[in-house]
Nucleic acid binder design. Structure first.
Lengths: 88, 88
DNA sequence: TCTATTTATCGAAATATTTCGATTTGTAAA
DNA sequence: TTTACAAATCGAAATATTTCGATAAATAGA
């Protein structure tokens, strides 16, 4: 898990992805399907956005049967917090 | 200065803008012209990227004669640091 | 005022992102 | 094995971003 600020920032630069991240943080028992209701997007679009968040290292993805179990990558969040702290 | 994560993240989602931010943090006596050498971009492209960083609240801009004096917005950086800390 | 310098804006081309419907893949349960 | 469901991939259209050269605006100094 390398800290790629550009990639992480890009992942967070979309309102739907921010919504998804915050929902995963709030409720660790969400599945991708829940994001369709939450964002109003189609299933393929949700899949696309979840992939970007996972690829950027912000979310971790564990396949659990037909569902995907998502969780916030806390190590990455701490790295990002530290990155911004260095400027403040 | 409102904390718009989506906008701030978007501003940081480009390698040239990250370079510019880090150069301003390193040396508070840079002018926009210096970024042309640093990034290899044209002057209009640099102007465009600086504007995005300023509009997102990451950099502050003070006009000083013909030059623009840029500085890192430390309050915004602290807000961003806190935003990520809440997840970690 | 005239000239040089720094930054901003305009217009357009190239590239990237977002989105959907259709389809495929993978898995659980009947 | 067949069916049903969750998620991923494909292909294409719409939209947004990045970039440049040309030009304009603003200002300092001769």
């Amino acid at each position: 898990m390398d800290l790629n600020i550009e990639k992480a920032a890009n992942a967070l630069s979309d309102r739907h992805r921010l919504t998804i991240l915050q929902e995963v943080a709030r409720n660790c028992n969400v599945a991708c399907g829940d994001f369709e209701r939450l964002t109003g997007l189609s299933q393929p679009a949700v899949s696309h956005h979840v992939k970007i968040l996972v690829d950027a290292g912000l979310l971790s993805s564990d396949k659990n049967g037909r569902h995907v179990q998502l969780s916030v990558n806390k190590v990455m969040m701490r790295h990002l917090s530290n990155f911004f702290q260095q400027f403040s």
